[in-house]
Amino acid sequence: MSQQAAKKEFPKSIYVIQHLAFEDLGSLEDIFYQNGFRVRYFEAGVDDLKPALEYEGLTIILGGPIGVYETEDYPFLKDEISHLKSRLQRNLPTLGICLGAQLIAHALGAKVYAGAHKEIGWSKLNLIDANQNLLAPLEDIEVLHWHGDTFDLPENAQLLASSEFYPNQAFQLGEQILALQFHIEIMAENFEKWLIGHTCEIRSANLSIAKLREDNHKYAEQLEQSCANVMRNFLVNIGAI
């Protein structure tokens, strides 16, 4: 048997932990389908997350409006964090977005805490060493930010991107673990769900729903195109394609 034939095939399902119904994979889902993957969702707070966090294929942890540190109010976070720590110790392929990125940072021993102000809306990233950066396709691209918490950079992690207000917007640990504070997955046609679901947060932050909608029309389609290139880079990195 050749060495190539003996190589273990990467699992063709992607497991996704969802903390909020309308914050799904967005444009990522079609990218994964186009590359021959199936997708299985797990609902945090309802489903047992252990199978998703012990899975040897790619597991994605999506965003949500709760904080990593709110374990008394949301006890399921304790198990999610515990299983995530074990997963990261095993260096299994993992992508975290927004809350998912904060959970990864926390599980790696970094501090997660409330930021000075909420960062909600579209703006460009400052990429670190852009030419050799996994996120290089996002250079000069407006991305969607939607968070109030932030995190310190975990030990041994490589910083990939910053923003005007928050120095740690994205990091990777080795080839298998990627954490994105911003929302790379947003899909133009689904954005109205965010405006409905987050209306209380938008109004409390004195933001314009009309402006957020206008910016979505301006920027989301280009982000979808660039997002596809970032995800292909990541899938190549983890040996999935």
Rank of each mutant, 00 (worst) to 15 (best):
N35R: 14
G36W: 09
R40M: 09
R40Y: 09
Y41C: 02
F42K: 01
F42D: 04
V46D: 09
V46M: 10
D48Q: 07
D48W: 02
K50T: 15
P51A: 02
A52R: 00
A52Y: 01
L53I: 05
E54M: 04
E54S: 11
E56F: 11
E56Q: 15
T59H: 07
I60H: 01
I60F: 03
I61A: 02
I61W: 00
L62R: 01
G63M: 03
G64Y: 03
P65W: 05
I66F: 12
V68R: 06
E70Y: 08
T71K: 15
T71M: 14
T71E: 15
E72I: 14
E72P: 04
Y74Q: 11
P75Q: 11
P75K: 11
L77F: 12
K78D: 14
K78M: 13
L84M: 12
K85P: 08
K85Y: 08
R87W: 12
R87D: 12
N91A: 14
G96C: 06
G96S: 08
I97F: 02
I97Q: 01
L99T: 09
L99I: 10
G100F: 03
G100K: 03
A101L: 09
A101V: 09
L103R: 07
A105T: 07
A105Y: 04
A110Y: 00
V112F: 06
Y113D: 10
A116V: 11
I120L: 12
G121I: 06
G121A: 04
S123N: 10
K124H: 04
L125S: 06
N126Q: 14
A130W: 05
N131K: 13
N133L: 04
N133W: 03
N133E: 05
D140T: 06
I141G: 00
I141R: 03
E142R: 08
W146K: 00
H147W: 09
F151C: 07
L153E: 01
L153V: 05
P154V: 00
E155H: 06
A157Q: 00
A157C: 07
A157T: 03
Q158H: 11
Q158M: 11
L159N: 07
L160A: 08
L160F: 10
L160C: 07
A161D: 09
S162Y: 10
E164K: 15
E164H: 14
F165E: 13
N168G: 02
A170F: 07
A170V: 06
F171N: 00
Q172Y: 01
G174N: 04
G174H: 05
G174L: 04
E175P: 03
Q176T: 15
Q176G: 06
Q176W: 05
L178M: 11
A179V: 01
A179L: 01
